[in-house]
């Protein structure tokens, strides 16, 4: 396991003075990812907040080659680059780096194609559960009950399970992690780097302006999401599903998930579930969904 002290010493390839909001989870997710991958990485970034974080040309806040591409094409442009890298005999990591809109929704077809073909691409979704760059609209990754600018009274459907969609493709590696655990991000990206074929990592990325919480709570909420079972830490590798971290402790019966309210209450995107009138119907449904989802994962997992 990588230690905090190791991580602190590693070179930063995401550069300071970038255009991200204060407390932006991309900073943590991308810094850590690039520490694991190193300079021999080429990024493919569709329309998402990372397009903006780079800042205005002819400079950019990133130290690896990067191709900004159309919303639905992170996987397909990366497929072509992976083919080219093979022809050139280049030892590089082809990294598709996309938000949840570009992954769960508009980019899904290209991801499925690349995954089915087994193209040599590491696809990482930093998942803030909405279209944040366009101003916080609902996406397929938005959870039930969440306010967005296209669901003013709360989303009426649960989030899509992208990890399971990738697991159904039987790709070599699928993992879910959270900005709350930079060491877990590092380990998973490192492991994915060493594998060939299509690999997928979903990083939960709590977004201060989108989730409506103070900017110092980014990491804390990334952890609470895991401790309440709202998000799971897992890896699917060589056909087997395994849990990590707090999720693993719960699976082993050593801990319990905290009530999801502890996570929801800290975000104003869920405030209408608590005031002016408490919405027990939705709160109970979210809690039920967490239980059912975890049981589904448990039924597939090796503990």
């Amino acid at each position: 396991m990588v230690t905090v002290k190791d991580l602190a010493k590693m070179e930063d390839l995401l550069l300071k003075g970038n255009a991200a909001c204060a407390g932006c989870p991309i900073g943590v997710a991308l810094r850590t990812t690039l520490k694991a991958l190193g300079r021999k990485t080429i990024m493919f970034v569709p329309a998402c907040c990372t397009s903006v974080v780079q800042g205005i040309g002819p400079g950019a806040a990133i130290s690896v080659p990067l191709f900004n591409t159309a919303f639905e094409t992170a996987a397909s442009v990366a497929s072509g680059a992976a083919a080219a890298a093979e022809i050139l005999g280049k030892d590089v990591t082809i990294l598709a780096w996309a938000g949840d809109g570009g992954t769960y929704d508009i980019g899904l077809q290209a991801i499925s194609g690349a995954a089915e073909r087994g193209d040599n691409v590491l696809y990482i979704c930093y998942n803030n559960q909405m279209y944040s760059n366009t101003g916080i609209q609902r996406s397929g990754a938005t959870p039930l009950g969440a306010w967005t600018t296209t669901t003013w009274t709360g989303k009426t459907e649960h989030m899509k399970d992208m990890g399971m969609i990738l697991i159904a493709h039987r790709v070599p590696y699928v993992a879910a992690t959270s900005v709350g655990y930079p060491d877990d991000i590092y380990e998973k990206v490192k492991k994915a780097k060493e594998k060939k074929g299509f690999r997928y990592i979903d990083i939960l990325a709590p977004c201060p302006p989108g989730w409506r919480f103070p900017s110092d709570m980014t990491i804390r909420l990334g952890r609470l999401a895991i401790e309440t079972g709202f998000w799971l830490l897992y890896e699917y590798e060589d056909g087997e599903l395994r849990f990590n971290g707090y999720t693993k402790l719960v699976a082993e019966g050593k801990r319990e998930f905290k009530p999801v309210e502890e996570f929801l209450r800290l975000q104003d995107r869920f405030r209408h579930l608590f005031e002016p009138k408490r919405r027990d119907d939705i709160l109970e449904e979210i809690q039920r969904w967490i239980k059912e989802r975890f049981e589904w994962y448990l039924s597939l997992a090796k503990i």
Binding site: V4, A8, G17, A20, C21
Partner: peptide, 26 residues
């Protein structure tokens, strides 16, 4: 490690804030 801005540096094993770039997220 958790600084979103990569603006806390290590100097002689001690963290040092780069106030030129720290956005003050907390």
């Amino acid at each position: 490690v958790v600084c979103p801005e990569a603006s806390i540096l290590l100097e002689d094993d001690r963290p040092k804030i780069d106030y030129d770039y720290c956005k003050g997220c907390g």
